[in-house]
C-alpha cells in the first residue's frame, strides 16, 4: 500500500528579487541559476515530500510578478493552506514588506494557514557578516508574535531549503484536512464539482449531440 497523499496549496509572497522563485527551484529541482529571469509559463510547480507515513504534495504558486504593483488577486490566497513570506537578509526594505505580507495573509487567507517567515540569501553573509541588515533576533521576534515558522536560508547553496518545506509539512493537519474545510464554513460538497479539464477530450471526441 502506498502512503496517503495530502495536497497542499502553498503560496509565495515577498518583495521582487528576494529569491522566491529560486527557493522553489532549489526545492523542486535542486537547482539554482544566478540571474534567473522571472518565471514564465508555469501555473504552479509541484513537489512531494514524505513525512512519517504520509506523502505531502506541495502545489506551489508563484506570484507571477503580480505583487510588483500591488496587483495580486484574491484568488491567489484562496484556500492556501501554507505560505512562505520571503525577505532578503541584506535588504531591510524587504523585511518591512514581509511584515506587510504577514498582515495581509491574516486578513485575506484562511484562518488556519501555516506561514513560514524565510530570510533568504544568507550565503552572502558567509563572506561578510556586515552585509546582514535584518537581525536574526528581529525576525525571530516577529515570528513569535505572529505564530510563524522561521528559517534563514540560501537558495544558492541549498542551506535550510528542504527544512522549510518539511517544517510546514509537519504542521499540516494531515487527516483532519477535510473536516477543517467544513469548519471554515466553506461547505463544499466534492461530488457536485466539475473537473472541466478531465472531460476535455471526451467532448472533443464526441462528434454528434448525444441528446
Amino acid at each position: 500500500m502506498s502512503n496517503p497523499i495530502t495536497s497542499i496549496k502553498l503560496v509565495l509572497l515577498g518583495e521582487a528579487a528576494v529569491g522566491k522563485s529560486s527557493i522553489v527551484l532549489r526545492f523542486v529541482s535542486n537547482d539554482f541559476s544566478e540571474n534567473k529571469e522571472p518565471t514564465i509559463g508555469a501555473a504552479f510547480l509541484t513537489q512531494r515530500v514524505n513525512i512519517n507515513d504520509h506523502t505531502v504534495k506541495f502545489e506551489i504558486w508563484d506570484t507571477a510578478g503580480q505583487e510588483r504593483f500591488a496587483s495580486l488577486a484574491p484568488m491567489y490566497y484562496r484556500n492556501a493552506q501554507a505560505a512562505l513570506v520571503v525577505y532578503d537578509v541584506t535588504k531591510p526594505q524587504s523585511f518591512i514588506k514581509a511584515r506587510h505580507w504577514v498582515k495581509e495573509l491574516h486578513e485575506q487567507a484562511s484562518k488556519n494557514i501555516i506561514i513560514a517567515l524565510v530570510g533568504n540569501k544568507i550565503d552572502i553573509l558567509e563572506d561578510n557578516e556586515n552585509e546582514r541588515k535584518v537581525a536574526r533576533e528581529e525576525a525571530e521576534k516577529l515570528a513569535e508574535e505572529e505564530g510563524l515558522l522561521f528559517f534563514e536560508t540560501s537558495a544558492k547553496t541549498g542551506t535550510n531549503i528542504s527544512e522549510v518545506f518539511l517544517g510546514i509539512g509537519e504542521k499540516i493537519p494531515l487527516k483532519g484536512l477535510e473536516d477543517e474545510h467544513n469548519n471554515n464554513g466553506l461547505n463544499v460538497t466534492e461530488d457536485q464539482r466539475i473537473n472541466l479539464a478531465n472531460t476535455a477530450n471526451a467532448s472533443e471526441n464526441a462528434s454528434a449531440c448525444s441528446c
Partner: peptide, 30 residues
Amino acid sequence: YLYPLYGLGELPQGFARLSAIYGGTYMLDT
C-alpha cells in the same frame, strides 16, 4: 450551465494570472 465557486469574478482573475505567468505586467488602482 456551470458556475464557478466564489463567483464569476474568479474568471477575470484566472485569465489575469494566465497573462501574468506568460510575462504580462499588472497594475491595479492606476
